[in-house]
Design a protein around this nucleic acid. Structure first.
Length: 421
RNA sequence: GGAGAAAUGGCCGAGUUGGCUUAAGGCGGCACCCUGCUAAGGUGUUGUGGGGAGUAAUCUUCACCGAGGGUUCGAAUCCCUCUUUCUCCUCCA
């Protein structure tokens, strides 16, 4: 959520930045509510101060044994007024909060301005698109033929876009999870977290999934619990409402979880294979940092995600997302895309975002600055390190051999226990 | 799932015949002083959030004692609902 003070003091600037995302966005309504809200508060404050003094007088008068009926009646009337104003205050508060919760983060100054995903910038890459003397097949055909993934029975158990891994497929998926976690904990210094995969609405609001994107999530009936769309939600919210010591920052955390997405509005996209399913596995990287270091830490986190792709010898490229394509809560975002022969192009496998203090403000995650003793909002950063199912698909497609076998990347072999499928 | 107890500031812990308690005391933190280092000691200071005034240092005001309602002129203190924690029973991987 954006800082109301910042909005108050720089309305033109904020409006301009928001319009970089989407010309329809504006903070004008919030500013109006804010003005009315503050007037209401001042009024209520004054009345409360008056009541306090008068009530104390009643106490003293009573001690002296005097009659207080008249003054009590007067104060009671003040109380009625206060009650009325307080209801208004709550109303304005909620309105303002609601508006703020539905306004996306402002883009970082360095985020390229654009109108659509076509304006994303390719900033770097590693490896060349896989080519072969023989015809490269799509992973959905290969995994089905080899019995690595059972699409039909996944549908039988749940519904379409639910899949089940089996045999060497299940082992490969598990191997990838372990490999990613090992690299990030042992080589990059992240603490491993195994969080709940059902979280409450406060957590979902904290990271920005709610209130705006309720349709994208699975919700439990009769319970204030949602299935997480990413480990970002539980892991970022670990320190919700807390004040950390500056020495505790930066915090590096990584978590494997299944992720659940309804994929509302994605009908017809990526209908085959492992690319877009309702439940998938992901290893996530999350950082809490000071404002001073978040830029660097964001870059470092992105490189940590790239590292596993390099170790797996998968060709990829890094995109810098433009203002129009960036997620709701982010101020800057890099996407990593892996080369997929079946798409004859690159497919997103990781998204690494810096949120500035936007999520921290929603989730109320602060730290005490050592030099000043003041509390400040932390900056939050996260990225996939990386999506397991998509890495699985990428390996199947990029490591297929002419004889129909799949080679297992060298670094993964200790984890799978076999070197070909 | 059943029965009981509890929830106060960074932590521990007073405050339950409603008003003088934003909240004693201790610990921790910070600043200064003292001590030739270290240990110890002394003095002071130390919650969060919102509003208003000021260029600013700062001043001022309101709210907050698990959360939300209620009673009252006035609630940390009384009543109701919820949440969480602990103990006992039950159950269970």
């Amino acid at each position: 959520m954006l800082d109301i003070k910042l909005i108050r003091e720089n309305p033109e600037k904020i409006n301009e930045l928001l319009k970089r995302r989407n010309p329809n966005l504006s903070i004008n309504e919030v500013i109006q509510i804010d003005i009315e809200r503050r007037a209401m508060q001042t009024q209520a404050d004054e009345l409360r101060a008056k009541r306090k003094i008068e009530s104390q007088k009643i106490g003293e008068l009573k001690k002296q044994g005097e009659n207080t009926d008249e003054i009590q009646e007067d104060v009671r009337k003040i109380g009625d007024e206060i009650k009325f104003l307080e209801e208004k205050e709550v109303e304005f508060d909620q309105q303002q909060r609601n508006l703020l919760l539905n306004i996306p983060n402002i883009p970082d100054e360095t985020t390229p301005i654009g109108k659509s995903e076509n304006d994303n910038k390719i900033v770097s890459g590693c490896g060349e698109p896989t080519e072969a003397e023989f015809e490269l097949r799509a992973h959905w055909d290969i995994v089905e033929e080899k019995g690595l993934v059972d699409f039909e029975r996944g549908v039988k158990l749940s519904q379409s876009r639910f899949i089940l891994y089996r045999g060497k497929g299940a082992v490969l998926e598990r191997a990838l999870i372990n490999f990613f976690l090992d690299v990030h904990t042992k080589e990059h210094g992240y603490e491993e977290i195994l969080p709940p995969v059902l979280v409450n609405s406060a957590a979902m609001i904290g990271t920005g999934q709610l209130p705006k994107f309720a349709e994208d999530m699975y919700k439990c009936e009769n319970e204030d619990l949602y299935m997480i769309p990413t480990a970002e939600v539980p892991v970022t919210n670990i320190y919700q409402g807390e004040i950390l010591a500056e020495e505790d920052l930066p915090k590096y955390m990584t978590a494997y979880t299944p992720c659940f997405r309804r994929e509302a509005g994605s009908a017809g996209k990526d209908t085959r294979g492992l690319i877009r399913v309702h439940q998938f596995n992901k290893v996530e990287l999350v950082k809490l940092t000071t404002p001073q270091t978040s830029h660097d830490e964001h870059l470092k986190l992105t490189k940590n995600a790239e590292k596993v792709l390099e170790l797996l010898e998968l060709p990829y490229r890094r995109l810098e997302l433009c203002t129009a394509d960036m997620g709701f809560s982010a101020n800057k975002c890099f996407d990593l895309e892996v080369y997929m022969p079946s798409y004859n192009g690159y497919k997103e496998i990781s998204s690494c975002s810096n949120f500035g203090d936007y999520q921290a403000r929603r989730a109320n995650i602060r730290y005490r600055e050592k030099s000043s003793g003041k509390t400040q909002f932390v900056h939050t950063i996260n990225g996939s390190g990386v999506a397991v199912g998509r890495a699985f698909a990428a390996i199947i497609e990029n490591f297929q051999q002419e004889d129909g076998t799949i080679k297992i990347p060298r670094v993964l072999q200790p984890y799978t226990g076999f070197d070909t499928i």
